[in-house]
C-alpha cells in the first residue's frame, strides 16, 4: 500500500462502472426480449446472469421449483360425476408429526355404529402457526396432504383455513408437482395391484 492513496477506491469504482455498463450491454444484447419472457426470467436466475437482476413481480414471477413448499393443502380426487372425495382418512399422522401442532382433525363417525370412519369431518390448519416445514406431506401415507405453491395469500384477516379452503384437486396437484405426482401414482397403483393380487 505504498502507492497512491485512492487507488483502492478507484479500483472499487471500476467494478461498479463495469456492472453499470453491463446492465445496458446485456439489455441491448437481448433485443427487447429480456423482460416478460420466460427465457429472460430464467436468464436472470442462471449462472450467466449479469446486468439487471430484478424480476419484476407481479408482472414477472420467478418460477417456483417443484419441491417448493408453502402452506399445506388437502388433495381430493374427482369422480366421474364431479363428486369430490378427499384422500384424507383422518389417520392423524400429519397432526402427530406437525412440529408447531397447527393441524386439528375431527374424525367422522358412522351415524349407525358410532365408530370412527376414515374421513375427516373437519380439518383445520392455522396458517399463522404453520412453519411450512413439509413434514405432514412427507409422512402422509395416503398422499392426501401436500405443500402448496401458491404464496400469494396476503389477507386483511388472520389466516385459519378449514377443509373447504384447504381442498384442491388432484389435477392441481399434478400440475404443480408433476414428477412427484407421477411417482406417487405409480406407487399407489402398484400397491393396489399387489393387494388385489393377494386377495384373489
Amino acid at each position: 500500500m505504498s502507492d497512491m492513496v485512492g487507488k483502492g477506491i478507484l479500483k472499487s469504482l471500476s467494478v461498479s462502472l463495469k456492472r453499470f455498463a453491463e446492465t445496458y450491454l446485456d439489455d441491448l444484447s437481448w433485443l427487447g426480449k429480456r423482460y416478460r419472457t420466460d427465457k429472460g426470467i430464467a436468464h436472470r436466475g442462471s449462472k450467466d446472469a449479469r446486468g439487471i437482476f430484478t424480476v419484476q413481480y407481479p408482472e414477472e414471477k420467478i418460477p417456483v421449483p417443484e419441491e417448493f413448499r408453502f402452506v399445506p393443502f388437502l388433495v381430493y380426487d374427482e369422480g366421474p360425476n364431479g363428486e369430490k372425495t378427499l384422500r384424507c382418512t383422518s389417520c392423524g399422522i400429519c397432526a402427530k408429526v406437525c412440529p408447531p401442532q397447527c393441524i386439528w382433525i375431527v374424525r367422522s363417525t358412522d351415524p349407525a355404529t358410532g365408530r370412527p370412519i376414515p374421513d375427516p369431518a373437519k380439518f383445520t390448519i392455522d396458517a399463522d402457526l404453520c412453519m411450512n416445514c413439509g413434514l405432514c406431506a412427507e409422512f402422509c401415507p395416503f398422499d392426501a396432504i401436500k405443500m402448496d405453491h401458491d404464496y400469494e395469500l396476503a389477507s386483511f384477516t388472520r389466516n385459519v383455513y378449514d377443509e373447504t379452503k384447504l381442498s384442491k384437486s388432484a389435477k392441481y396437484y399434478e400440475s404443480i408437482r408433476p414428477v412427484n405426482a407421477r411417482r406417487e401414482d405409480a406407487a399407489r397403483a402398484a400397491k393396489a395391484a399387489s393387494r388385489t393380487g393377494q386377495g384373489e
Binding site: G92, A95, C98, W104, V106, R107, T124
Partner: peptide, 15 residues
C-alpha cells in the same frame, strides 16, 4: 410432550 391430544384424536379447534 407432543403430539398433543387436542389435535388428534380429540380434534377440538380451540385457539
Amino acid at each position: 410432550a407432543k403430539p398433543l391430544k387436542s389435535r388428534w384424536p380429540d380434534g377440538r379447534m380451540i385457539m
